[in-house]
């Protein structure tokens, strides 16, 4: 069985990511840039992109762009947040991916990602962070 992870990102300005960025800076977490995406993970699909594109509630071509991720887990500088006990939606697991950058292109180091997760991005009472 193949596992696919498809990231749905805003191609318009992401206000939520900007709020998270400014909040993290206020908390002393040194982040230059922050990207946010919803990652849908599922098994066995003939065309993983089409599976997301078909759903108008998950994907709006006017404001979203899709990316099939090369790995089924967080990349460098990234944390995936999963809601504990969340039901699968249409046979897919849902994560919020926060990707932190130390400068314009370089991913943030692990310690920075952990600090961001612990201080703001994850409430361990209801969420699980994968880094």
């Amino acid at each position: 069985m193949s596992l696919y992870s498809v990231a749905v990102k805003l191609k318009i300005p992401d206000n939520e990511a900007y709020t998270a960025l400014t909040a993290l800076r206020r908390l002393g977490v040194n982040v230059a840039r922050l990207e946010r995406a919803v990652v849908w993970q599922f098994e066995d699909a003939a065309d993983p992109v089409a599976r997301i594109e078909r759903s108008e509630t998950l994907y709006n071509p006017n404001k979203h762009e899709l990316e099939v991720l090369e790995q089924n887990g967080p990349r460098a500088g990234e944390a995936w947040i999963e809601e504990l006990g969340a039901r699968e939606e249409r046979g897919m697991r849902r994560y919020i991916a926060w990707r932190l950058f130390a400068d314009a292109h370089a991913p943030a180091d692990d310690a920075t990602v952990r600090a961001a997760v612990e201080r703001l991005l994850c409430n361990p009472a209801i969420e699980r962070a994968i880094t």
Binding site: E16, T19, A20, A23, L27, L121, N123, E127
Partner: peptide, 14 residues
């Protein structure tokens, strides 16, 4: 508050 961004209450708590 703060449009419930990240989680409800998460940003205003800081």
């Amino acid at each position: 508050a703060y449009e419930d961004r990240i989680r409800a209450g998460a940003v205003p708590a800081h």
